[in-house]
Simulated assay, not measured.
Amino acid sequence: MGPRLETSRLILRLFEPSDAKTVQLLAGNEEVARTTLSIPHPYPDGAAEAWIERIRNAFNNGDIYSFAMIRKEDEVLIGCVSLRVAKSENQAELAYWVGHPYWGQGYATEAAQSVCKFGFTDLNLERIFAAAMVKNPASYTVMKKIGMKSEDNFPKQILKSGVYEELVHYALTN
């Protein structure tokens, strides 16, 4: 059983196999997939199950800490926040997505803050960084809100669905 983090409105816990259907539904939404680097669209059947198994193993190895965002008031799974750890460099990449019905309510900021604190205190990380597509200001607003500083001396591009997207980078040091 992995760590369980708590914020005022959320419980952050390890994903369970029973979360697969909700993950497929939320992550499979075109609005969510469009601005997320790692989410396929359309989201194939069985992919969520495979992804949950993969991240549970990664959690146990200390490589990726992916937490399910669970809303306390109704115990509904609303998104994901994760730290992908590079042990040799003592740093991690922060990533998150929130289901479309739950956008704009500050959940990503709340979860990201909690997970960064976990990264610095429990994992003794030196640096946490994050990237977002330029066309996704909601994502880098979260980065700014949790105190990350822009590191954009090198605009980088990534290929997503056959289109090159500009990325912005932010970081936080312990």
Rank of each mutant, 00 (worst) to 15 (best):
L25W: 01
R71T: 05
W97C: 11
D74Y: 01
V163C: 00
Y96H: 10
I70S: 04
Y43A: 02
G99C: 00
F59I: 08
H100T: 11
E166I: 02
Y102L: 04
Y65D: 12
N153A: 02
Q105Y: 12
I11S: 15
I52A: 14
L123M: 12
N153L: 06
A171L: 07
Q157C: 11
N153H: 07
A171T: 12
E75K: 14
K156T: 15
T7V: 11
Q113Y: 01
E16T: 09
E151P: 02
Y107G: 04
A27T: 03
F59V: 08
G62Q: 06
E93S: 09
A33H: 05
V163G: 00
G119R: 01
E75V: 00
F129K: 07
H41I: 06
V134F: 02
V168Y: 10
K21E: 00
G119S: 02
D19C: 07
A95Y: 09
I64K: 12
S18G: 11
A95P: 10
M133E: 14
G62V: 08
V23L: 04
G2Q: 04
V32A: 04
P101Q: 08
A86K: 08
E16C: 09
F15T: 03
K144G: 09
L172G: 13
I78Y: 07
K160E: 07
V142N: 05
S139K: 12
K160C: 09
R13H: 09
N136S: 13
F129I: 06
D152R: 12
E6T: 12
L83Q: 02
F129N: 04
N136R: 03
A27D: 03
C80K: 03
T121S: 04
F129H: 09
F154S: 11
G104D: 03
E53S: 13
S88Y: 12
N61H: 07
V115E: 05
I128E: 05
A86D: 13
T121C: 01
V98T: 13
E89K: 11
C116I: 06
D45S: 05
I64F: 01
E110F: 09
N57P: 05
